[in-house]
Design a protein around this nucleic acid. Structure first.
Lengths: 130, 130
DNA sequence: TAAAGCACTTACCTTAGGGAAACTGGTTAC
DNA sequence: GTAACCAGTTTCCCTAAGGTAAGTGCTTTA
């Protein structure tokens, strides 16, 4: 049905060829699940967006994301750090200053975020009357 | 820091202008959260991929997605139906044949899926030695 | 010297997501 | 006539995610 030719195609041709279709399917499903394992959940992308937007300090990030709590933010920042998407830097000031920044690797998520943002915008338009 | 100029930009300029930065930030976070509300979770995108790949029947979809159970598939298909992403058609055969197909609206998710697939592929390469 | 800010942590509790397994009510193939 | 397939449903259970609220140790501001 739908066939979009960008660099990677959602290989949906040959719908009725039974033999190798499952394996083909896995080639799309598996990477998507790998990606979802890292970035799914309610907060990870919002945090990445906030940090990319220039919010570096803990309280600053907290204020920039509606409804997030410090407990959740703390935990999610640790997760993002272990996934090498966020870097935590402690400056030896009085009192200590902590800054969160995105790693260069996090920039590779740009296309994902942009795709989701675009889809979210049009989806909201669609469901709340056009 | 990172600035990618596609149609929509992750507006991350002016990092230290305090006044309007939160509102700007929300303009990205909100649509992304709207999108995540619909498609996040472990199974929705895999199901959409499987159906787009030509798997129309319940058992066929079930077999094409590793580790999914019939209970979860049943529930997620209902969710996708209410979000107008999947259409369920019952054919009055003996016994009844049920077919799931994507709506045209689901095709709008292609760019999201492609972005996630690409990211997942390179992420796996990155973490499992290059 | 009290209040408020920073960067968190801890304790407690609720809910949602999801796994395992069995079961239903029908039909077809052997 | 029994095994297997289809399209699910039901029950029971468990864990992870996440909300609420308070506290900690430090410092700056009024």
């Amino acid at each position: 049905m739908q066939m979009k030719t960008e660099e990677l195609t959602i290989d949906c041709g040959r719908p009725e060829t039974e033999s190798s279709s499952h394996t083909d399917c896995h080639k799309v499903i598996m990477p998507v699940r790998d990606a979802l394992d890292v970035i799914s959940g309610k907060w990870k992308l919002p945090i990445i967006i906030a940090v990319s937007r220039g919010h570096k300090r803990f309280r600053d990030i907290e204020r920039s994301i509606p409804k997030i709590t410090s407990k959740v933010l703390s935990k999610e920042l640790k997760d993002l750090e272990t996934h090498k998407l966020v870097k935590r830097t402690v400056y030896d000031t009085q009192p200590v200053t902590v800054e969160y920044t995105l790693t260069p690797y996090a920039a590779t998520l740009d296309s994902v975020i942009i795709a989701l943002q675009k889809w979210g915008i049009q989806h909201r338009k669609k469901i709340l009357g056009k």
